[in-house]
Design a binder for these strands. Structure first.
Lengths: 290, 290
DNA sequence: ACGCATATATCATAAGCCTTGATGAATACT
DNA sequence: AGTATTCATCAAGGCTTATGATATATGCGT
């Protein structure tokens, strides 16, 4: 006897019937003729020498064997689909350049790792720069994608995620509320962060001074943890050495910033599409680390 | 586009090629023609638009994609086979009577539970009796199966498992080595146990007396745990209230007994075959509880 | 180097399975 | 009642797939 092998096509039909509750609807969904689906169901029963369904009036009802096969079928199909898309993914090849502000680089490694697992044949290059510059490069097609903080001078792109900004100081420091308020600024969203901070302070009637600036958060870290300045960061970029300040600190509330994904104009390459999808999926959930 | 569905038949062929290392061998194993297997492999590659194998000289080598698909295939096929045999099992129906010595009854519940899970449509009845009687009933087709301790007056059957016999006393009792040695005997394998014990004692030059007898171990439990007698049990039937005696106790070593499965003569019913298989599988491992 | 044995790919053919479209019966809805 | 769905059945056609034979390649032994 040849090895007993289920026909996944028939199982898919079975599931469709169960999902839609009718043969005709299943046929529509699967792009088959109604008679095809009807016969497929019979074929399945014949192959198993088993009754999977009964009818009560017009409505279809699955027997306990049918239900049991359904649960097997769903598992089997899930595995099938996973296998299939995995094999397809391995055919996606090409090169791809993504631009991100420097400080995001250290925050996306899980996405990159996952992407490389899914699409091992894609050469991914990551380039850092300021948001404004990156957006220009995308427009010039020097980059396929850029994930930036949205700002006045570089609008557009698709908003991936909104994120609250917070005031922060060193974890062991008292809120440093001298007047003028000493600010530490760094560059990735520097223009946005600075603008936002200054507007908020001005509206609250506070004075301030720019105490330190740096290209990246890393450069500011010693200053801030030492308690010499207050910094503005997104909530997801808080580190254990930073302590966020709530409204009790007397500092004005900050608005949200928007993370936007820019795509090179006109027909993105397949790898770019996929990475874009992945970034959207992975960053959509606000709880997950950026 | 219609849903992408893998053909499990082709995957099975792929696995066979990988296992056997050659197309021809795979063909033999699957009972296909060599040309069929060759084309199946090509078909699979065509469907996925993917190269799965290369040849170096005569030997076949799978590409990394091939290897990856193989691992998917194995999982998929494992699920398939499980689903298939589950569906087949549900078609096994009928009634079935198994005979066992009373004291084994409490030791097989996991087997019965598993059996009922696999073959829910089979009505299983269990009957208790002495080994000798059960064997007679199997011969008379009053029972489908009987699991008994093999003994001189009821030979035959298939040996499922060999098991050591041990001397035991109450867990808190000193080895009771008075002369004559007080024995507690119970019935399921009573004749065997008694015979074995007496032979061993005689060979060792020890005298003994039968202090207590009962139909089951349950009846003897109070006597033995009270330290009034020594009992002979199989190692797997030791309970927390029994303490086995090793050779340092001075009692002679005991031989092994054999658990044998008797089947009704001529063509066993399908349910009987299955239960027999299951018992063999479940009891074969000596470490598992009887 | 040659030939034999084995393994594999290719091809035409035939079988058989699967989809299709049509038809009729049964059931709900108006 | 009449109408509209839904479904099972059927014959027909198409397409897929297994087969057996054949051609080609590879490896091994002489």
């Amino acid at each position: 006897m040849r090895a007993p092998t289920l026909d996944l096509t028939l199982l898919r039909t079975l599931v469709a019937i169960s999902d839609t509750g009718s043969v005709t609807a299943a046929a529509k969904r699967l792009d088959y003729t109604q008679s095809t689906v009807s016969m497929q169901l019979q074929r399945l029963e014949a192959q198993l020498t088993l009754t999977l369904h009964e009818r009560e009036g017009r409505r279809i009802r699955f027997t306990s064997e049918g239900e049991r096969l359904l649960s097997h079928a769903r598992r089997l199909l899930a595995l099938n689909d996973e296998a299939w898309s995995d094999m397809q993914a391995r055919q996606v090849t090409g090169d791809l350049t993504l631009g991100i502000p420097e400080d995001y680089a250290s925050l996306l490694p899980s996405v990159f790792a996952y992407f490389h697992q899914l699409y091992p044949s894609v050469g991914l290059r990551v380039i850092c720069g300021t948001s404004a510059l990156l957006v220009e490069q995308v427009k010039a097609k020097e980059l396929d994608l850029a994930l930036v903080t949205r700002q006045r001078n570089s609008p557009g792109g698709d908003v991936i995620r909104r994120e609250p900004l917070v005031w922060a100081v060193g974890v062991n420091q008292q809120p440093l509320l001298s007047d003028p308020l000493p600010l530490a600024l760094y560059s990735p969203g520097a223009d946005v962060f600075r603008e936002v901070a200054e507007q908020a302070l001005q509206a609250a009637g506070r004075s301030w001074r720019v105490a330190y600036t740096s290209q990246s958060m890393a450069g500011l870290a010693p200053i801030v943890t030492a308690g010499l300045a207050v910094v503005v960061v997104t909530r997801s970029m808080l580190t254990p050495s930073l302590r966020p300040l709530d409204e009790s600190s007397g500092l004005p509330a900050l608005p949200m910033i928007e993370l936007a994904l820019h795509r090179a104009p006109h027909r993105p390459s397949e790898p770019a599409r996929r990475l874009g999808e992945l970034i959207r999926e992975q960053l959509a959930a606000p709880e997950q680390a950026l």
